[in-house]
């Protein structure tokens, strides 16, 4: 039984890889975009899964980091195109690696104070305060006309990566897929490490962690920042996928969506976010084609998962968590 989870994970990874290949074979490139969307949302949720799944920190503000990543990509690209420097004569750029680096760094810088303040609280207060911070950033973005305000900010062309033609759907999918796999590898390493042990202990019993001499606050803060960095990277990719950074990336709906992905897929499970993103995008597409009210049905499904399948899809497929 313990051996089932790796098999399920492998199958999920292969399935996600197969979608765009099949799409290409049958001449339906739209499905490549759908698969890319899954990979990016899964990447964002792998980030949140560090805080929420391992640490039990229910951040209802991760849209802030997703959106920040998106705006970093769009703003840098805009400046690169119009040739105006950002500030202090720093030019924009259309280089993805530079954009990723900046997005990750900015998310870390912003997550640090947000986490330091929010982690003074716990439970429902933590949920509310992370939401409040994210909404502050949201309103800041829509009231800043220089970068599109409520209209958001378009990218003229997709940003670039050496040796890869990112304008084509399949190569861009492969880039996102590779980053997702990298993030999953990192999550796996972190979960099994000393830090991961402390983080999971903080979730189970913070007093126990303190009693062995490890301060839960520091562990949780580090987890929150790492979590935000991954979600920020996903945001940058999302803006590139849509060639658009929308304020909706920053809104509380987005934070909720990421939490839903994790609950659907399986909280704290390595491939929970992947399974969750697949289900979510599938429902969005399949149900969305039939009815405008697809989110109502998604709500029903979510209710079913919470009531009858606590472990999410991974819990159903691979059984209970094994803690080694």
């Amino acid at each position: 039984m313990a051996a089932r989870e790796p098999t399920v994970n492998t199958l999920l990874a292969l399935l996600l890889m197969a979608v765009p290949l099949v799409a290409l074979a049958i001449g339906e490139p739209f499905y490549i975009t759908l698969a890319t969307r899954i990979a990016i949302l899964a990447l964002a949720a792998v980030g949140l899964n560090i805080a929420l799944g391992l640490g039990g920190l229910v951040s209802f503000g991760h849209a802030a980091f997703f959106g920040l990543g998106g705006y970093v990509a769009a703003i840098l690209a805009t400046h690169a195109f119009n040739g105006e420097p950002l500030f202090l004569g720093i030019p924009g750029t259309t280089s993805m690696p530079v954009i990723w680096f900046v997005a990750i760094a900015i998310c870390a810088l912003i997550a640090l104070p947000i986490g330091a303040i929010s982690l003074r609280t716990a439970g429902v207060y933590f949920i509310m305060i992370t939401l409040a911070f994210a909404q502050m950033i949201y309103y800041f973005a829509i009231s800043w006309p220089a970068y599109g305000g409520e209209d958001g900010l378009s990218l003229y062309v997709r940003n670039s990566l050496p040796l890869v033609n990112t304008a084509k759907p399949l190569p861009f999918f492969l880039v996102c897929y590779a980053l997702l796999m990298l993030a999953l590898a990192l999550f796996w390493l972190i979960r099994g490490s000393r830090f991961g042990a402390a983080l999971q202990a903080a979730r189970q019993n913070a007093t126990r962690l303190s009693a062995v001499g490890i301060a839960p606050f520091n562990i949780n803060l580090a987890a929150f920042v790492m979590s935000a960095m991954m979600t920020g990277l996903a945001g940058a990719l999302f803006a590139d996928l849509n060639r658009f950074a929308s304020p909706s990336m920053l809104s509380w709906h987005m934070s909720g969506e990421l939490i839903v992905l994790i609950i659907l897929g399986g909280k704290g499970r390595l491939f929970g976010p992947v399974a969750g993103a697949m289900l979510y995008v599938f429902f969005e597409y399949a149900l969305g084609g039939i009815t405008e009210r697809w989110q109502f049905f998604l709500g029903l499904i979510l209710l079913g998962v919470v009531l009858f399948a606590r472990g999410g899809l991974l819990g159903l497929l691979a059984g209970k968590v094994q803690h080694g």
Binding site: S193, R194, F195, A197
Partner: peptide, 18 residues
Amino acid sequence: LAVQARQGPSFRFFRPVM
């Protein structure tokens, strides 16, 4: 968890504890 705490800070991210 106690053994790891005694050995120093827990900000070690890669080596599997098991």
